[in-house]
């Protein structure tokens, strides 16, 4: 059960190998989260096993990795039903999976772009709706959706990714409204540039941050009952301006 200060006791991370997802989970385990389920494409991979051990050492008592592929939407109902049935109430479900890809690659291989959009948007809609139904049944639960500042305004350099996140962000907000009164909630997280596997080798953007800092912001936001969490918080104001820049100016600013 989520407590009055937003601390949760059980979490399911979809995209459970994500660095940001794991940072959030570690932070929750430090608090009082004891049940962790990682939904990953390869439950038996070495990195997954290391993550499971790491969370056990940190204090989680029940940790397991289950097979989950965001693109394999036909399996979502069964995978999530199994988790909710075996582990009891799940207080928090994190949608952490995501594919950034490279715009130059997408430009030449549209099929790759479709794959990314399948994961980022279609997969999240599917898993999100199944989760919402389970939340209605258990009468509580929070869906934490890792959107991005890229959802706020498309940029030349990653507009396929940005557009998929914009769709995801809109979906998550709408789902949150649909769940009002059921006990279920949706929280949208909009990180800026985060140093993780996803951005390895890329030049850092202004206000770049780390997975641990995002986790900290998420925990604070959950405590305060926020529906949208920016990480770092200042990006809320930065994008309040960016959103309204004239297009020619935005093209210049966003190209840097």
């Amino acid at each position: 059960m989520r407590d009055a200060l937003g601390a949760v006791q059980s979490v399911l991370v979809l995209g459970g190998s994500s660095e940001i997802g794991l940072a959030i989970t570690r932070r929750l385990v430090q608090d009082r989260c004891r049940t962790v389920v990682l939904g990953v494409r390869e439950p038996d991979a070495g990195a997954t096993r290391a993550a499971v051990d790491d969370l056990r050492r940190a204090g989680a008592t029940s940790v397991e990795a289950v097979r989950f592929d965001a693109c394999d939407t036909a399996t979502h109902q069964a995978v999530l039903d199994d988790v909710f049935e075996r582990f009891g109430d799940i207080d928090l479900v994190v949608v952490a999976f995501g594919v950034l890809g490279e715009q130059t690659d997408f430009d030449t291989h549209p099929a790759h772009a479709v794959e990314a959009v399948q994961a980022n948007y279609v997969g999240a809609v599917s898993a999100g709706l199944v989760t919402a139904d389970r939340f209605r049944q258990q009468g509580h639960g929070t869906l934490l959706v890792l959107s991005s500042v890229a959802a706020e305004r498309p940029r030349r350099s990653n507009y396929v990714y940005g557009s998929s996140k914009a769709g995801l962000d809109a979906f998550a907000q709408g789902l949150g409204d649909a769940l009002v009164g059921t006990g279920g909630r949706v929280v949208v997280v909009r990180p800026g540039f985060v140093h993780s596997r996803m951005t390895e080798g890329m030049a850092a953007q202004p206000f770049a941050t780390t997975p641990d800092a995002v986790a900290e912001a998420v925990v604070a936001g959950l405590q305060k009952g926020r529906e949208i969490i920016w990480a770092p918080g200042i990006l809320r104001w930065v994008f309040a301006v960016m959103r309204h820049l004239p297009r020619p100016l935005w093209r210049i600013v966003s190209a840097r």
């Binding site: 059960m1 009055a4 209605r136 049944q137 258990q138 009468g139 509580h140 006990g183």
Partner: peptide
């Protein structure tokens, strides 16, 4: 004050 008198989903 807390959740003693609540039963989510039940």
């Amino acid at each position: 004050y807390g959740d003693a008198a609540q039963n989510a989903g039940g």
